[in-house]
């Protein structure tokens, strides 16, 4: 599709991915490749299946009663929909950040960050502290919380909570970070901070972000996919999607004539 893309290593690729809620066909055969260390936006009108699509990438979609998915998603070359793959084990390799900041209410800031590691059997306090500091620094939260690591995670402001959730996702050092409208519940200042953080994270991780905010996608994403009613209309460099789309539907959407 694009020269730059073929040069880079592909972290995550989907091939003919479908998803259903009971009888409702929400995602209809999407095939995309995500190159390493890029930000990839998924945009589309609400109800187009973009969140469902994202949730198929770490197989959390199938946890909803009545939901199922089929197709192929390869993470670093391995198909995560292969029969031998344990979805729980898989999710430990993929970070996810949700629409609403959702730190665990019964855990402190510190516990929230290291919970992923604890689950994998790490229990040495000094190591956990080191990782917590590292991740909180990466999530640009360390300076604000370093003196109150033992306060509940829910005591922070919305934007801080979202960065805490990002730190929590980073702690297991996943190759891919999925973000489901991570700024839609935040005010503009907190959103800007998260966006800034995402461009930082790009240096180490591959980020896939669902957003309903086209300006945001244009600002931060290297590649953008446009979905309508579960179908992939167009995928390409953001610069191309937003300035020179190939499809009429994409042009209508990005210029605000549709959706």
């Amino acid at each position: 599709m694009n020269e730059k893309q073929t040069e880079q290593k592909v972290t995550l690729a989907t091939k003919d991915l479908h998803a259903w809620f009971d009888d409702f066909h929400a995602v209809k055969g999407i095939s995309v490749e995500y190159p390493e260390k890029t930000i990839n936006a998924v945009i589309g009108p609400s109800g187009c299946g973009k969140s469902t699509y994202l949730r198929c990438l770490n197989r959390i979609h199938e946890e909803v009663p009545g939901a199922k998915a089929s197709g192929e998603v390869s993470l670093l070359g391995q198909n995560i929909y292969a029969p031998h793959v344990d979805p729980v084990e898989l999710r430990r390799n993929i970070g996810m950040v949700f629409q609403k900041p959702n730190p665990f209410p019964n855990m402190t800031i510190f516990e929230n960050v290291v919970i992923g590691l604890k689950l994998q059997g790490y229990s040495k306090k000094s190591y956990l502290l080191e990782v917590a500091e590292h991740c909180l620094k990466k999530a640009a939260l360390w300076e604000e919380v370093k003196d109150k690591l033992n306060r509940p995670g829910t005591s922070l402001s919305g934007g801080q909570q979202q960065r805490l959730c990002i730190a929590r996702a980073l702690a297991v050092n996943p190759p891919v970070l999925l973000m489901d409208e991570p700024t839609s519940a935040l005010d503009p200042i907190a959103s800007a901070k998260i966006e800034e953080l995402m461009t930082e994270l790009k240096k180490e991780f591959t980020v896939i972000v669902v957003t309903h905010n086209m300006q945001q996608a244009a600002r931060i994403a290297d590649y953008t996919s446009f979905l309508v009613l579960g179908e992939l209309i167009e995928h390409g460099l953001s610069s191309q999607i937003f300035t020179n789309p190939k499809e009429q539907k994409t042009e209508d959407y990005v210029t605000g004539r549709f959706g």
Partner: peptide, 19 residues
């Protein structure tokens, strides 16, 4: 990121798989 290791199928540490 070069240290990313993938482990997708059952962990030997546990007697039972998560499923």
């Amino acid at each position: 990121s070069s240290s990313h290791k993938l482990q997708l199928s059952g962990d030997k540490k546990y007697l039972l798989s998560f499923k």
